[in-house]
Design a binder for these strands. Structure first.
Lengths: 237, 237
DNA sequence: GGGCAGGACTTGTCCGAACAAGTGCGCCCA
DNA sequence: TGGGCGCACTTGTTCGGACAAGTCCTGCCC
């Protein structure tokens, strides 16, 4: 059973995407929405706060809320695995492990994963495809305490995240993403099927579980012709 | 006068950054914090929600909140102009206009700025420097209704955003950022002082005012050795 | 020793209320 | 006509309360 504020958020989101309210249109006042849904004002405010966080509506004291620009693409608003994201956009993700190495943690690994330098880590390099086309090279370092579970996963599993949740009850709950661009190296170019030196989008990512314990640290390189990312933003001061 | 929940959020944020609570440590329960600050639980919850949105703490029903990973770098969490961002990180931003053109809106401009194709727009190309070093080329298209104001701003103004707010009471309130990577063209390379073909981080950005009316649409190309971006994320399902 | 049930604890949801703060429109007057 | 003031409206803040839902430790039983 969904909570009431989620239901209301879903209803409003659907209405906006259906363009019941065109971009630029004013939303009804909170009190009116509250009456319409037979809930307290606080519940409606909760729902509206979600939409504002997604960048769908404006919110500003004293002024009516306004529907902001149109459709949403793949957004950074929620943390998603590659496979989940692919499914959500109606595409198919496949995975292929290129190499797997156990080695002692470098200083960088130790800092990223908050473990002691020299302790055991598992480094995995994967090529990921979207509808068959290679789009992403993942170089992931897993903390030692999860390494055994990772090694048990078959190399061609489509969603590692899903397997971890099911088999080991490990949930990726929070992510920190550092974004820049790099030129494709020889190996990258070969695997992704682009020319050497082509620009790739690089995302260095650290993922932690609910307790804030780092699980993996990864460097992902994306072909930019196949994938791009969207971030929504609001002035807060 | 700051609101109470802002004060509490600031206090907690400061404590976390001061590492009073180490990463991985448990925060006190809401009821305890509420008693400590002499406020209702709802007020503390409001403050904690801000920190969770910034990726500083975890939040999960039934479990105590946990302090997540360390210090924050330049984040996409709040919308900031180039100049404001530079100032906040203790650096100096300067601007230089390369070219200014009035022309009819292309189909792309019209879609981005939600105006009619063919109507008047102002295209400006700027080189931006950080502590003297060129780091960013901005190709910005302004909607016709703001063009006159933009043209009145002197070419070497450091912060266009600031001038717009002061002179024309135009506020950039919401942003949508589409991120990928491109190779530097001849012109880009020359201006930024990199080799042709070097990877640049490209951010296509549309900014709107409080009412959701698009003000500018910009394509920004960053040298990746000077600047990078951080996004924080949480699982929402 | 391992697994399961219970219960204390903690966060999430929702209500109703009151007041503060900011917006924006219309009216009035110079 | 234009500017400024005031007022109705709307969102933001905060309180206090009650209950639901989820977590996690503890102790019992096999």
């Amino acid at each position: 059973m969904r909570t009431r504020h989620q239901e209301i958020a879903d209803a409003l989101r659907a209405a906006i995407e259906r363009e019941d309210w065109a971009p630029g249109a004013l939303l009804p006042p909170e009190t009116e929405l509250a009456a319409g849904y037979h809930v307290a004002r606080g519940t409606v405010r909760h729902a509206l706060a979600s939409l504002a966080a997604e960048g769908l509506i404006s919110s500003r004291q004293g002024a009516r809320r306004v529907v902001l620009g149109g459709r949403r693409s793949q957004s950074f608003a929620e943390l998603r695995s590659f496979a989940e994201w692919a499914t959500a956009t109606g595409r198919t993700a496949t995975g292929l492990v290129i190499s797997t190495t156990r080695r002692p943690a470098t200083a960088q690994d130790a800092a990223d994963l908050r473990i002691t330098p020299g302790s055991d880590v598992l480094a995995v390099m994967r090529l990921r495809r979207l509808d068959g086309a290679p789009v992403l090279i993942e170089r992931t370092v897993y903390a030692g305490w999860i390494a055994d579970t990772i090694e048990k996963i078959e190399p061609d599993a489509d969603s590692v995240t899903e397997r971890l949740r099911r088999d080991a009850n490990v949930v990726f709950a929070y992510g920190r993403h550092l974004i820049d661009a790099v030129a494709a190296g020889t190996r990258d170019a070969e695997l992704l099927g682009v020319r050497r030196g082509s620009p790739l989008l690089r995302i260095r990512r650290t993922t932690t579980n609910h307790a804030g314990r780092p699980v993996e640290s990864s460097e992902d390189r994306y072909r930019t012709d196949a994938v791009s990312f969207v971030v929504h933003n609001a002035l807060s001061a």
